[in-house]
Structure formats: C-alpha cells, structure tokens
Amino acid sequence: MNIKLVESLIQAILSLSDEERSLLEEKLFFDLSEPSTGDLMLLAQTGRVFQILNDEPDIYLLKDGELI
C-alpha cells in the first residue's frame, strides 16, 4: 500500500475549493459509463424487445390481478 500517495491525495483534495471538490465528486461518483435509468426506460419503450408481450393473452383481471 502506498501510504504516502494516499496522504498526498488527501492533502490535495483538502486544498481544493468547494467548486473544485464538487467537480471532483461529480467526476468520481456521477460520470458512470453505464446507461442511466432514463436511458434504459427509453430503450424499453422504443425498442421492440417487449413487442412479443402484445401478442400474449390477458390472463389477469386489471382490477384485482386474479386469474381469469
């Protein structure tokens, strides 16, 4: 473990302004390479993956979820 590096990083982070810390947090925690929930919802809505479900019979009642 490189303790000197860790301590140097901590000192560098502590010396940042609030704006710089916010940018660092954004880059570390929010810039994910994974699609967002909204992206996945849009894909599910516009993609044809679930199209086969339109051909399935309705076997439950809408009001109570019981089998017909």
Rank of each mutant, 00 (worst) to 15 (best):
M1D: 15
N2S: 06
I3M: 10
L5Q: 13
E7W: 09
S8V: 02
S8R: 06
I10N: 10
Q11I: 04
Q11Y: 01
Q11G: 02
I13A: 05
I13P: 05
I13W: 00
L16N: 01
L16I: 02
L16S: 02
S17I: 01
E19F: 04
E19G: 04
E19C: 09
E20Q: 11
E20S: 00
S22K: 09
S22L: 14
S22E: 03
L23H: 08
L23C: 06
L24P: 02
E25F: 14
E25L: 15
E25A: 13
E25D: 08
E26A: 13
K27E: 14
K27G: 07
L28I: 03
F29A: 12
F30P: 03
D31T: 06
L32R: 05
S33V: 02
S33L: 05
S33P: 05
S33G: 03
P35I: 07
P35Q: 03
P35C: 03
P35F: 01
P35A: 01
T37P: 06
T37R: 14
T37I: 13
L40V: 09
L40P: 07
L40F: 00
M41N: 04
M41K: 08
L43V: 11
A44K: 06
A44T: 10
Q45G: 08
Q45R: 13
T46W: 04
R48P: 08
F50W: 05
Q51I: 05
Q51F: 12
N54Q: 11
P57I: 01
P57R: 00
D58E: 13
D58G: 01
D58A: 14
I59Y: 03
I59W: 06
L61F: 15
L61I: 12
L61T: 11
L61G: 14
K63V: 07
K63T: 12
D64R: 10
G65V: 06
L67H: 01
I68T: 06
